[in-house]
Design a protein around this nucleic acid. Structure first.
Length: 712
DNA sequence: TCGACTGGCACTTTTGAAGGGG
DNA sequence: ACCCCTTCAAAAGTGCCAGTCG
């Protein structure tokens, strides 16, 4: 049995801040505009018993995460990222492609993704921009997407690009597939959590949370901004068919419509001439039809090749049916068309009208320069030899999809500078200044993406106060005199051009004092206060787990919610998030606690947390964006989505019971993860099969079983 | 009436099974 | 019998669009 406490007042080592990951950055002399990585406050990774592999690379106590496709994200951010959400679930694009550094190669980590509201507003696309039009809807149950590789060794995570492309977003509040449930027309901020699972699955080690402000997005059910649509089409391989030169592009669709109509006409002629022959399909007839379909040259845009009245030619339904019999596979368009009978006539008429007036619709398109995802600051993965001692980890059973990352040069807007945040001298990047919490926001623009609908020129934040007088208007000008332990570095900017100033009545509050965590600036080993984490949720255990080099769930077939991981919005419910926007930075990192940043608003922002006197989590709040003040909502019960795709195949059916409709957003006073000697009996009914599943079907390589229990 | 949402469509890429050849 | 390669079809991921709903 293994009883491990989770969050029992996490003790962390000396923490430093501002250690932005500058390596290989173009302009090391200055804070890069888009620092591709930032590190988390260093911490001590004292090797746990059994993991003290002498060959392990000495831990430098720096965990860095880099958004590999940051440039793509920033492209979208510059326009105003929109994410489609559907009932069945929709993948995110761009996806989160991350690089991790600084992990202990021999320790195991769990990677989580959650998405929390970025503010408390509902948005509407008006006048070419997003405007806040009201308060956000009731908070949905938080769900956390667990990376399918979890848990894996640090060597594993560091040896490859980490992709969360399997995560799906849905607006179906009754979703049982484990997708992340979001509200449409709300702004969200993805977060990535790196949780150390010492001794295989002994939670309670360090935790690092990363936020990339440029990954904020607004959820939609249909794209609102044409520029986003173009970006998506040009960037997403699956949308290739909609590109200018694609088969489904506007031009091609028009031409196809014309061909369809023309072919339909010919088909009708054939059918009407000899329907009996058509009932007996022959190779010749099929070939003929196929030939007819494929050999039709694109009709001139200006003339469809036949008169509109021909399109409305009355077609006997029996003829339509007969014509189906000799449709070849290549003629699926026609067969469908014919099957629809008279309805198709209307479509054809519509098509004709569309054809006649559709040719002027050519908008400038993005032509991203596709290349493999690259990182400006991450030249290469750590030498594998460094991690040779790490235990092997089973490769994911799925084949990750690596989308090309269009790399675009920084646009003028992206280089815009609004203000700077104190930051250590670039030359000191390798030796971070003392401090603790660290965030690495990039340049903050008045039109910060984080704000979307917020103005930033009225951000009386402490952060701003900390900025140098020259910060405004200077591109990435670092404030090297940030000797007071500023947590925020500014190095770049990107904008949301279409974001209209909103929430003018919003009261901007500094985030500095809002975080409940306390951390001395002297860097001495200190206790990380987690006042917002209920005691009862500070333990997690895996009674039947024993250390093992691998953890596999061979039969896991689909993702589902798993209750045994910490919630996404721990101490404070996401609903109580400050909803402040993030500075368009490469990332915001919080170390060794389930992060407070987004949830910091749960605390009265005018009253620093008792334990935060020396802890300044400097979110470039106001300047970054507005931080609407709103009444914190009761905490919510987050759900863990284990994306082993197979873990708990039966969980789907049980999920509803865990989140009954009537209590869809139940108060969540605590979120303890506690180990029990008898996890099965104590498991909430909906999840007991999970335990059974593991117990019965997934023996641990070393003979033990994996189980977990969440205590609420 | 209007904005948001839904489902079907046509296209694409991805994935895995099936078949053939060495 | 095994392995490798190619082919093919199904599955899944896209945006578009017309219809529906509140």
């Amino acid at each position: 049995m293994l009883n491990v406490e989770m969050y029992p007042g996490l003790t962390v080592g000396p923490q430093r801040m501002g250690d932005c990951f500058y390596r290989d950055m173009e302009a090391p002399a200055r804070i890069p505009r888009f620092p591709s990585a930032c590190d988390v406050a260093p911490r001590l990774l004292d090797p746990s018993p059994g993991t003290g592999d002498p060959s392990s690379k000495p831990q430098k106590d720096e965990v860095k995460m880099e958004l590999e496709n940051s440039s793509l994200w920033k492209q979208f951010s510059s326009v105003g990222t929109e994410m489609i959400i559907t009932k069945k679930g929709r993948r995110m694009f761009p996806g989160l492609r991350l690089k991790l550094l600084g992990l202990n190669p021999s320790l195991r980590y769990i990677l989580l993704l959650d998405i929390v509201p970025a503010d408390n507003s509902r948005y509407r696309f008006q006048g070419g921009g997003w405007q806040a039009v009201g308060g956000a809807e009731a908070r949905l149950p938080d769900r956390v997407f667990i990376h399918p590789d979890s848990p894996a060794t640090g060597a594993h995570w560091q040896s490859r690009t980490i992709s969360f492309h399997y995560a799906k977003l849905t607006n179906n509040t009754l979703d049982t597939q484990g997708h992340i449930i979001l509200h449409s027309l709300h702004r969200y901020q993805p977060r990535v959590h790196v949780i150390e699972a010492r001794d295989m699955l002994r939670w309670g080690g360090g935790q690092h949370n990363f936020v990339f402000p440029e990954t904020q997005f607004i959820t939609v059910t249909a794209y609102q901004n044409n520029k986003i649509t173009e970006l998506k089409i040009n960037s997403n391989p699956f949308a290739k068919g909609f590109r200018e030169d694609g088969m489904n592009s506007k031009k091609q669709r028009d031409a196809r419509q014309k061909r369809k109509i023309a072919t339909l006409t010919e088909t009708l002629d054939i059918v009407n001439c000899d329907p009996c022959d058509a009932s007996e399909p022959t190779a010749a007839s099929s070939d003929l039809q196929a030939l007819t379909l494929t050999s039709l040259p694109p009709l001139p845009d200006s003339s469809c090749g036949f008169r509109p009245e021909e399109a409305s030619y009355p077609v006997p339904e029996h003829s339509l049916d007969l014509s189906l019999t000799f449709m070849t596979s290549q003629m699926s368009d026609i067969s469908v068309t014919m099957a629809n009978g008279m309805q198709e006539k209307q479509e054809n008429e519509a098509a004709l009208s569309m054809i006649e007036g559709s040719d002027a619709m050519v908008e400038p398109t993005y032509e991203p320069n596709f290349s493999t995802a690259q990182s400006s600051s991450f030249s290469s993965a750590p030498p594998s030899s460094s991690f040779s001692s790490s235990t092997s980890h089973p490769q994911p059973s799925f084949r990750p999809v690596d989308y090309p990352s269009p790399m675009l040069p920084a646009t003028p807007s992206l280089q815009q500078t609004s203000f700077n945040f104190p930051t250590p001298p670039p030359s000191d990047s390798s030796s971070p200044s003392s401090g603790t919490f660290h965030t690495v926001p990039e340049m903050v623009s008045p039109h910060t993406p984080a704000a979307f609908g917020a103005t930033s020129n009225t951000c009386p934040s402490d952060l701003q106060d900390q900025t140098s007088p020259h910060s405004q208007g200077q591109q990435g000008e670092p404030d090297t005199d940030g000797s007071t332990g500023p947590m925020v570095q500014t190095s770049g900017a990107f904008t949301y051009p279409n974001v209209l100033p909103m929430n003018t009545d919003t009261e901007y509050k500094p985030l500095v004092a809002s975080l409940p965590c306390s951390l001395p600036s002297n860097g001495a080993g200190t206790s990380f206060a987690l006042p917002s984490i209920p005691q009862q949720m500070q333990t997690v255990s895996f009674p039947t787990l024993t250390p093992s080099p691998t953890l596999s769930f061979p039969n896991l077939s689909h993702q589902t919610a798993a209750p045994f991981l910490p919630p996404s919005s721990f101490p404070h419910s996401s609903s109580s998030l400050p909803h402040h926007s993030f500075p368009p930075s490469s990332c915001l990192a919080v170390s060794s606690s389930f992060q407070q940043p987004l949830t910091s608003a749960a605390l009265p922002q005018t009253q620093p947390h008792p334990s935060s006197s020396s802890y300044t989590c400097s979110y470039p709040s106001a300047g970054v964006s507005t931080i609407p003040q709103f009444t914190p909502a009761p905490p919510y019960r987050p759900e863990m989505v284990l994306h082993r795709q197979a873990l708990l195949p039966q969980l789907d059916s049980s999920l509803p019971s865990s989140t009954p409709p009537q209590a869809l957003y139940p108060a969540f006073p605590s979120y303890p993860l506690r180990l029990h000697q008898d996890p099965h009996s104590s498991l909430p009914a909906p999840f007991r099969h999970l335990y059974r599943q593991h117990q019965q079907s997934y023996p641990h390589p070393q003979g033990s079983y994996i189980s977990a229990r969440a205590v609420f």
